[in-house]
Design a protein around this nucleic acid. Structure first.
Lengths: 150, 150
DNA sequence: TTGCTTTCCATAGCACCCTATGTATTGTGA
DNA sequence: TCACAATACATAGGGTGCTATGGAAAGCAA
């Protein structure tokens, strides 16, 4: 009885479980890479968005990143605790606030990118370019199927 | 500025992020499908293993499923709470106990499989067989790269 | 303008996974 | 045999994500 048995038979062998399995390992890897930099894996999409759009509301961030609103709220709380974002009151909507990157975040961004590049490279080592493209194409279908892209 | 922007440019466009994105949506879907049955998504690998091997130690389960020991401990606690597993003292090792499926778990297994089959089908709808195979092949490389298979 | 609906957030509670540690038992070499 | 190392599990503390609710402001229609 090999340990491989589990991941090669029955429902657990379905690609969906492999996706989950790979995702767990990727998170594990990235989390370790980013910990020394005071970054979390989940911060990245938010940072990328705020870098491009200067300031956004929580609602917009949640929609773009495709997580639920309470998830984004908790994420922003962590990012604020780590000094990476700033909240300023919305000029015309008292319910909302505008979120933007702190100088600290912008400053650390290049290093984060570099470290993350290493991680991506390690994860995809030995996967030829056409397979990476195929991976993306197929996963896009899966995401679309499950409502990830409206 | 489309919401798709984020997932089509920069590091976030890397396949690793698509894997995470797809994984999240899959978990969301499966969790909803299994909730009415009193099952969690993470239960499945454990159930499959115990169905085949009758009884196993926590350590073996963690190794096979490839999660850390405390993760398996918490998972088994939830499964026990839901009445799906039974712990019996290990005959020769006082530190350990043997874990096996309850009749309730075996009874519900077929329905769980059926519901899960629907979920897998929905997630992979429109993905031809050769692409599913490719997906599995590529993800296997990623998992191996990140130490998922010793 | 008033009153209803919608929208934006916050909070509570839970699933799932990780690292870091501690405790107790087992196994092993001197 | 006895002290030390290895093993099995428990616990503490977080990160990431979801659903379900509730409160407050904004939008809108009568």
């Amino acid at each position: 009885m090999e340990s491989n048995d589990l991941w090669s038979s029955g429902f657990v062998a379905e690609p969906t479980f492999w996706i989950n399995h790979a995702s767990r390992l990727i998170m594990r890897e990235f989390e370790q890479l980013l910990r020394p930099l005071g970054f979390g894996t989940a911060y990245l999409p938010v940072v990328m968005l705020l870098e491009q759009h200067r300031e956004l509301q929580q609602r917009q961030l949640a929609d773009f990143v495709r997580v639920e609103q309470p998830t984004m709220a908790a994420l922003l709380t962590r990012m604020q605790r780590d000094g990476l974002i700033v909240r300023t009151p919305h000029p015309t909507d008292a319910r909302s606030s505008l979120i933007s990157l702190s100088p600290k975040a912008l400053e650390r961004l290049p290093e984060v990118m570099a470290v993350l590049g290493d991680g991506v490279g390690r994860a995809l080592d030995g996967v030829p370019e056409e397979d990476r493209a195929a991976l993306q194409r197929i996963l896009r279908i899966v995401v679309t199927n499950l409502g990830g892209i409206p």
